[in-house]
Design a binder for these strands. Structure first.
Lengths: 328, 328
DNA sequence: TTGAAAGCGATACCAT
DNA sequence: ATGGTATCGCTTTCAA
């Protein structure tokens, strides 16, 4: 691979000049003919700067590290991530998603710190510890932002409070007069960080009304749903919040197949407002989750990087509201 | 952030010794007491090596770059990506997902090359060009692997031939006697690389039977589906391949609402074998896609890196087979 | 306007 | 068994 020295040689100038030209350094005036020669030489050689060398010299990077453990999560999240990446790149950051499955908080933090990212935006897939945050900050991270359901000491915390989804569903069901409410807790691993708070949210909503809340373990298979539906009469529930639309749809079908009428015998509610939920009969009531735009978060990151001292706004990035259809 | 020099100072040894100890360099013998002192010093200071400095010195990285443009794609793909990451990390690679939306092939290749990855595994979201591949190779990439639906000159091509999904669906429908087959082509951007080949696959299957194939543009909204269903009688189709289960479910519901009986008047077929497809009535016939494990691909990458000259096995990473349920 | 040279952090060769 | 030192590619200060 050609280096800047090769470009300099071909253009008949020094490496310094090459650097000035290719980086448009404004503090230095380079004659137009020279600029042209340098650019042509770079083009001709197919020169690509060496990011590692550059950041070693600079003493910092423009890397924003996005840990991913790729939990199975809806299209909403995917869209949000997309927006975030796009917006960050427009702000001239290099977005690096770093797969971190199977690493514990401190291992992960050390691995990330090796890349010397200027910011880390953790969506909550990896349980960051205060020590981990400390390591990252000392490695040059000017912002460590957690979007998880629960804040981590030392990190800039930005709420994406999943319990509000549960609270919203709970409120909707209680309003409509339901009093024994089941809440699906997926058996699949990786979802605990979402399912726990959602359950808590329903409990919180139910607390002052005296309604009962019953957690229901459910795997994402027809068998599991059928088994749960089979013991439905014993449970005596008049409503169920299905964690999200997919689990809710699965359970609703199993209930119907078991002769439980929806919403007559039991109301069913989902979350995420998937298009598919509208295709079932009865149409699935749901909680629509409005996420702040990725653009907005990108700006927050940028501001945190610019001024690491400032505590970030307590701003909540997520909104939730119930949508009544036919299943409740 | 402490450097190896700081560790050396605290341990009372030279930087060379620190390097030897922390990297377990076998060519050099270091006394046990020294090793201990170095390790303790590193621990105490919270030393984390600087990846950029290391790779600058080494002249190469262990980065495997995975471009992502995050097209809306099923859980299958997500699972596969997960496995791949995990397996690559076990082989001691650093997996970096690099968000590349809105970059054209050559821009993207240059951006990736700055990181000097040892391998690039492109899932086909970004249309790589032969020049792009050349840039990457010259930047030190020992393997450029495309999994896309169509090979790129210069790259190691590993087929994930989407046309076989279409062929499979087509064969299933023809076998059952359908003769005018609609094929949904999603209007959403980013899916062309999948939808094109799938359509071609159906065409190929139909070619020798004299059956007709009609492309049907459809957006992922209820309105679009209703509009398409409204002109169904004019189309005179006796079967439709819905691109995937989600579009198929959407269309099937719209058809039913418009009074078209499924499969009586028109058969409907999906792809991906989503659990949700089994919840509808009639149950959705589908194409099940079996993807090679990520583990397997990781080994292929590792082998390609070890021996860049060898052409990779022409191996197909994907299998497809029709699953008959009730909608065809 | 351009060039020479120092130095970012880690490694590996060559001495001792 | 350990230490000194050149080196990787790039940026930037200082001189010319």
């Amino acid at each position: 691979m050609p280096t800047s020295a090769d470009v300099a040689r071909l253009a008949g100038v020094s490496r310094a000049t090459v650097s000035y030209v290719l980086n448009n350094t404004s503090a230095v005036r380079i004659s137009e003919p020279t600029r042209l020669r340098v650019r042509q030489a770079a083009e001709e050689l197919g020169y690509v700067p060496h990011a590692a060398a550059r950041s070693l010299r600079a003493g910092h990077t423009r890397i924003v590290l996005l840990p991913t453990a790729h939990i199975p999560v809806g299209p909403l999240y995917g869209h949000f991530l997309n927006e975030l990446q796009w917006a960050l790149r427009r702000l001239d950051y290099t977005v690096v998603q770093y797969g971190s499955m199977g690493l514990d908080g401190d291992e992960a933090a050390r691995a990330w710190a090796e890349l010397r990212p200027v910011a880390v935006v953790s969506l909550g897939e990896v349980a960051l510890t205060p020590q981990g945050v400390e390591v990252l900050k000392r490695s040059g991270a000017r912002a460590v932002i957690t979007l998880g359901p629960r804040p981590v000491e030392g990190a800039h915390a930005l709420a994406m409070d999943q319990s509000r989804v549960g609270a919203c569903a709970g409120a909707h069901l209680l309003e409509r007069g339901y009093r024994r409410i089941g809440v699906v807790v997926p058996e699949e691993t990786g979802l605990e960080l979402f399912s726990g708070p959602r359950l808590d949210g329903v409990r919180r909503a139910a607390a002052r009304t005296g309604a009962e809340v019953v957690p229901l373990s459910l795997a994402y298979t027809e068998e599991s749903a059928a088994a749960l539906a089979a013991r439905w009469p014993d449970l005596g529930l008049d409503a169920v919040f299905g964690y999200n639309d997919e689990y809710a749809m699965l359970l609703m079908r199993a209930l119907q197949d078991a002769g439980v009428s929806v919403p007559g015998d039991t109301a069913v509610m989902g979350a995420d407002d998937l298009l598919l939920g509208r295709l079932l009969r009865p149409r699935l009531s749901t909680v629509r989750i409005d996420m702040e735009t990725g653009q907005h978060l990108a700006e927050l990151v940028d501001r945190a990087v610019a001024d690491p001292g400032r505590t970030p706004e307590g701003h909540d990035l997520m909104g939730a509201r119930a949508i009544h259809r036919e299943s409740t």
